[in-house]
Nucleic acid binder design. Structure first.
Length: 418
RNA sequence: GUGGGUGUAGCUCAGUUGGCAGAGCACCGGGUUGUGGCCCCGGUUGUCGUGGGUUCAAGUCCCACCACUCACCCCA
């Protein structure tokens, strides 16, 4: 038997109803705040991701699905959405005449990692970006939208973490201070951190190896090295969150794995997904638009891990299984032909219909109707055809009434659709 | 990419030192010649993850692969 590819998965009926609900809620919320949908391709030139995400990130170094297309060009299945959105923003000059744009997209991303709970090679993200807006209020809006969406989906036990990574003015001095400090404890760092120490020292901060954490006990905090502007923006973000009543924790070690982040970064974390604690994450990327060849405009955004969110939302989700309004039970071929016509007519008029097409006993048809949760069953057999009316049974009260065959579809539709 | 665990019916799982592949739930039929859920009776479920090997004999032992899972790593 041919099975699906490792790390890929099917979302089956029963689970997909919750996915539909999450998508509906997210769209509704984002669009209420002026976000417009943008649909971007799944395949992009590899160069786009190398330049935006960063050559030395794990994503680019070892996780991308990259291959040569038939013309020989290196193409990559998108590992995230921000790069493409920024590319589209620049390419279609969406920054003119007003650079402020709120955009969102929902779709699959691809990273070739070892799969485990909450981590798949194809996973879905809800991605929202506020482009062309420098104010930290935009960051506050994004964190607020995340907590609001989680609340709407009755997700519990999550916390918002925020940090600032500084900007081109203050990050270099912090980086230098950190590098000096790391050099002094280099013999106590793990293998990975020894490598990161020189190339990407900020990433040492969120290493989970206990020895590294100990060695880093006296490490400088980025927050103490922020320049005046970054400090002011970070305070404004915190003020905004506090006045909104959004609970959060300041986490100076929240570094994140993509190179393009500047200033505000944030993450929604949970303890309910094992080792995969991040449900959503994002931050500001004020240099990216310019670095990809666009105008020098700021931007900020987030990505929600749809698969992880669905898993959390499932913990408190009601039964979303679609139930038929009406089940048509027919006995014998002439009755089945009549019932089929009603089935089609009622379905077209907005009734959720179900019907057994085979020759089954009435008992087994009622059993099926009960199993599917049908509210009503319309029964028709030789008797009903002879007397010119069908029996409509209320499955909850067990009460039945006669519906004349003449004008049955209109009558039943009017009854069930009100 | 590295290490540990798991894989038997649609689902949850049992299966002894290698000796006829099982239970509960679900499903189907009957009790009720045309009325669901509860009850009673009966019945069907299977390439034992896949492919090799050892053996008179493999669900059981050995090897490889695949998938799931936990941790590392990383992030959504």
């Amino acid at each position: 038997m041919i099975q699906l590819i490792r790390g890929f998965r099917d979302i089956l009926p029963g689970e997909v109803e919750l996915w539909q609900k999450i998508e509906r809620e997210a769209r509704e919320l984002l669009e209420r705040f002026g976000f417009r949908e943008i649909r971007i391709p799944i395949l992009e030139k590899t160069e786009l991701f190398r330049r935006s995400i960063g050559e030395e990130t794990d994503i680019v170094e070892k996780e991308m699905y990259t291959f040569a297309d038939r013309g020989g060009e290196a193409v990559t299945m998108r590992p995230e959405a921000t790069a493409s959105i920024v590319r589209a923003y620049i390419q279609h000059k969406l920054y003119a005449p007003d650079p402020a744009k709120r955009l969102y997209t929902i779709g699959p991303m691809f990273r070739r990692e070892r799969p485990q709970k909450g981590r798949y090679r194809q996973f879905t993200q809800i991605d929202a970006e506020i482009l062309g807006v420098a104010s930290p209020l935009a960051d506050a809006e994004l964190v607020f939208l995340l907590t609001s969406l989680l609340r709407r989906l009755a997700v519990e036990d999550v916390s918002a973490h925020v940090n600032s990574l500084g900007c081109a003015a203050c990050r270099p001095s912090f980086r230098l201070a950190l590098q000096e400090m790391l050099a002094a404890v280099s013999d106590r760092l793990c293998e990975d951190c020894s490598r990161r120490r020189v190339r990407n020292p900020l990433r040492v901060l969120d290493c989970k190896v206990p020895e590294c954490r100990e060695a880093l006990a006296g490490a400088p905090s980025i927050l103490e090295h922020l320049c005046g502007d970054c400090r002011r923006d970070f305070d404004l973000l915190r003020d905004a969150l506090e006045s909104l009543g959004v609970p959060y924790v300041v986490d100076p070690r929240l570094v994140r794995g993509l190179d393009y982040y500047t200033r505000a970064t944030f993450e929604i974390q949970t303890g309910a997904l094992g080792a995969q604690s991040a449900v959503a994450g994002g931050g500001r990327y004020d240099r990216l638009i310019a670095e990809l060849g666009g105008p020098d405009l700021p931007a900020t955004g987030f990505a929600i891990g749809f698969d992880r969110l669905a898993e959390l939302a499932a913990l408190n989700a009601p039964d979303l299984r679609p139930k038929p309004d009406l089940f048509l039970a027919a006995l014998g071929e002439p009755a089945r032909r009549a019932a089929f016509a009603w089935y089609c007519g009622l379905g077209e008029r907005g009734v959720r219909v179900a019907m057994e097409f085979g020759e089954k006993s009435l008992k087994s048809q009622l059993k099926a109707a009960d199993r599917e949760g049908a509210a009503w069953v319309l029964m028709v057999g030789e008797d009903e055809l002879a007397r010119g009316s069908a029996s409509l049974r209320d499955m909850r009260t067990k009460r039945q009434r006669e519906i004349p065959l003449e004008g049955l579809v209109e009558k039943v539709a009017a009854m069930l659709c009100e």
